[in-house]
Amino acid sequence: MKVRVHVQRRPGIADPEGSTTAQALRSLGFDGVQEVLIGRAIDVEVATDDAGSALDQVEAMCKQLLTNPVLEDFDLEVLA
């Protein structure tokens, strides 16, 4: 089973990469751009057919290694 971890900066943590990209989009004429936040996705495949178990395992991985709670929030999505 494959689980996708969506990692995003916590609110209030400045994202200079995102704000620079937002500025670039505006300069290209996308005037409606209000904010761009750049995160990352991590796909983890675990040896189980049970979605609940896969989510539990990946959540534990997020807490221990994959994300830093000072900087980041995460959401999990079962892919297959």
């Binding site: 943590i13 400045a14 200079p16 990469e17 620079t20 830093n68 000072v70 900087l71």
Partner: peptide, 17 residues
């Protein structure tokens, strides 16, 4: 040391990238 929680806080990309 920050990642190991021996110190509090974290470090990330510089303000001006």
């Amino acid at each position: 040391l920050c990642e190991a929680r021996l110190l509090s806080g974290a470090l990330m990309a510089n303000r001006d990238t």
